[in-house]
């Protein structure tokens, strides 16, 4: 169990490193080595740590712990073939962590980050409709059942393409440097993590590594079906590289526009689900 967690944290951080490297190469820069993000976490964890005097102290520390706990839960839900609904619930709960990070510090930059995070939360909730689409097709929301369905009927990627696109946008929105990552856009310093430094930041980076691993792996499991570990790793890296390309080549959108695009996508998915519900 614990070995899965530690493995996932390291792989997630490594994926972050690959992501940065790929973006750098696409933009014609050498970029940092791919284990840079792991070093980053270690560096942060060795830094001196305290809590800002303006912060809401309990909350300030609690969100870091909750962030790690939330994504550990997600990992286990995924590994045990639990409910997809629960996996998405955990994903939404991550938004609470984002809000909490920004709000708890009392810093105006953190607050801006939190406000932007609230906006994006509102637009990501409707992407839940994806789940309804999967449910209508496979008749189950247990990840193990979905895998069994795919083993019998072939990948969901082709059967439920709109749902796959919606989930792809969800994953994209969560990547560093993505056009949807308005929360950490540089004009508000580091957004909602501005005040979390030292050990707190290290914990958060570990949680984010876990998050990247879980999201990429979930996408593979949900839309490509069960596959051996090595093949899954290759698929994850390929998926990550496709995301890196988008991140490297597209500019950061304005906060309101990201919301409009995401709500628009969600609206299309809702129409798709309703139509499918009527036809099926």
């Amino acid at each position: 169990m614990i070995e899965y967690l530690i493995f996932a944290v390291f792989v997630g951080l490594l994926l972050h490193g690959i992501h940065r490297k790929a973006i750098a190469r696409i933009q014609g820069r050498p970029g940092p080595p791919i284990w840079q993000e792991i070093l980053h976490v270690l560096k942060f964890s060795f830094k001196e740590t305290w809590i800002p005097a303006t912060a809401s102290q309990t909350l300030f520390v609690a969100v870091v712990i909750i962030a790690i706990g939330v994504w550990s839960t997600a990992l286990f839900v995924l590994l045990t073939g639990g409910s997809l609904l629960l996996l998405f619930a955990v994903y939404m709960l991550h938004k609470i962590v984002e809000h909490g990070l920004g709000l708890s510090s009392g810093s105006p930059y953190g607050k801006f980050g939190a406000i932007r995070s609230v906006m994006s939360a509102a637009s990501e909730i409707p992407l839940f409709a994806t789940i309804a689409a999967i449910y209508l097709i496979t008749g189950s929301l247990m990840i193990s059942d979905i895998q069994a369905w795919q083993a019998a009927h072939g990948p969901l990627l082709f059967t439920a393409l709109p749902a796959a696109i919606a989930l792809y946008i969800v994953v994209l929105a969560k990547m560093h440097y993505s056009p949807f990552a308005v929360i950490e856009s540089k004009e508000i310093v580091s957004g909602n993590v501005t005040e979390h430094f030292g050990v707190w930041r290290a914990g958060l980076e570990a949680a984010f590594g876990l998050k990247t691993f879980v999201l990429l792996y979930a996408f593979i499991v949900l839309f490509l079906g069960p596959m051996p570990l090595l093949l899954a790793a290759v698929a994850m890296v390929l998926l990550l590289l496709s995301l890196s390309f988008i991140c490297a080549l597209s500019p950061m959108l304005s906060p309101f526009d990201t919301v409009t695009i995401q709500i628009g996508t969600a609206g299309l998915i809702v129409v798709y689900v309703l139509l499918m519900g009527v036809i099926v």
């Binding site: 809401s56 309990t58 909350l59 938004k95 609470i96 809000h99 909490g100 709000l103 708890s104 009392g106 607050k111 939190a114 406000i115 932007r116 609230v118 906006m119 939360a121 509102a122 637009s123 909730i125 409707p126 919301v259 709500i263 969600a266």
Partner: peptide, 24 residues
Amino acid sequence: MAPFYIGKAEITRAPGAPYVLMIH
């Protein structure tokens, strides 16, 4: 207030982090 985010985003500007967080 799910997709009509703006009301909530503006509300978030209120102080009192642990309490405002409860809204979300």
